[in-house]
Simulated scan of single mutants.
Amino acid sequence: MERSVVKFSHCDKDIFCFFVPEQCPECGVSFSGRRLEEAPVSIPNPFSNGHKTPCAFLVAPAEESSLRDFDGGSDLHTGITNTNGVVYNYTKDGVRRDHHGWERCISIPLVKPDMYNLIDQWDQYLEKFSTEQTWDPLWQSFNEENHNCYNYTLMYINCVLATQAKPALSKDEFTQSFILPRIKRASKYLTLCEEIAHCHFYIVDSPPKVTEGEGKSD
C-alpha cells in the first residue's frame, strides 16, 4: 500500500514526511508531551485508480514509461472511462478498451453524480463514438500531431457537451484549465516523495503568518 505524505509545522518550518517523528528533525526537540504548532495534515495524493473512477478523463504516462514522466517533457496517454471503469483509449491499432493498466493515473471526473440521464447514456455514447470510422486505423491512421489519443478524448468530451447544448472546449482551453494544473501538482508530489524517500524529511521555511489587521491601511 502506498504511503501517504503528511505535513506538520515546528520551529517556523514546514516539515513533510511519511510519519510524524518523535522529535523535530530541525531542532531536535522531543514531541513527547508537547503540542505541535499545527496539527499534522495529510497531503492529498494526486493519483487514483482510473478503473475505479467512472465517467472520467484519465492521464497516464505512455506505455513502458514511469510516473516520473509527469515532468512535462515526456509523452502522456489519455483515455475515457465508462461507468464500469473500462478505459477507452485511442492507439495506433484503433480504440482499445482496457480493463487494467490504469491503476495509477490522474483522473478528472466529467459527470456530476446527479446527472442521471447522462450517466444512463454514457456507455452508449462512448461505444458509439468509439466505433465511428474516424477511429478506424484502416480509414485514418494515427498521427502524433493531429489524430491521437488526446484528439479522441477531447472530441468525445465535446460531443457530450453538444448533447447538453454547451459550447465546445478548444485543445488549449482544456489543457490549460484542467490538465496542466493537475500535472504540475502530480510532478511536485512525486518530487516530494522522492526527496522524503532519500532524506526521510523535506523541510522548508513556513510562510509568514499574517496577523489580524496587518497589511491594512488607515
Rank of each mutant, 00 (worst) to 15 (best):
R3W: 05
S4G: 14
S9Q: 07
K13Q: 06
F16K: 07
P21W: 06
P21F: 12
F31K: 15
E38D: 09
I43T: 04
P44S: 11
N49E: 05
G50S: 11
H51D: 04
F57W: 08
E63K: 03
E63S: 09
S65N: 13
R68C: 06
G72D: 12
G73K: 08
L76N: 11
G79W: 01
I80Y: 00
T81F: 07
N82G: 06
T83L: 07
Y90N: 05
Y90I: 00
T91G: 04
T91E: 07
G94Q: 04
H100R: 05
G101F: 06
W102L: 12
V111I: 10
K112V: 10
Y116F: 13
D123L: 00
E132Y: 02
Q133I: 13
T134L: 15
T134I: 11
P137K: 02
L138W: 08
L138K: 13
W139A: 12
N143T: 09
E145V: 03
N146Q: 02
M155N: 08
I157L: 15
N158G: 09
C159W: 06
K166D: 10
A168Q: 11
L169K: 09
T175R: 15
T175L: 15
T175M: 12
L180D: 08
L180Q: 12
I183H: 14
E195H: 13
E195W: 04
D205F: 03
K209I: 15
E214M: 15
K216S: 04
S217P: 02
S217Y: 04
